[in-house]
Amino acid sequence: MRRRSGIWTYPAVMAVATIAGLLIGLTGDAGWDAISWALLAVPVAVCAYGLWPNSARRPSAAQGPNP
């Protein structure tokens, strides 16, 4: 079983990227807009990778069978 903090590391990174992207786009202009696009594109790219057929992580052999 994984530690609770490990479960939330990547979701926390996604949340920070999203909030930062939203706020930077709202408060900045020009170059800041580009940073906003890049940050908000991160969750889109992660989802696209996950939804791409057979691209998402497969369970590793060392991890053992899953429920």
Binding site: T9, P11, G50, P59, Q63, N66
Partner: peptide, 20 residues
């Protein structure tokens, strides 16, 4: 989001169990 934690205890982030 509250249910995500318990359901991911044995899985890595982004893991999809294609064999199931």
């Amino acid at each position: 989001i509250a249910l995500y934690g318990p359901s991911m205890r044995r899985l890595k982030f982004g893991e999809v169990r294609h064999h199931r």
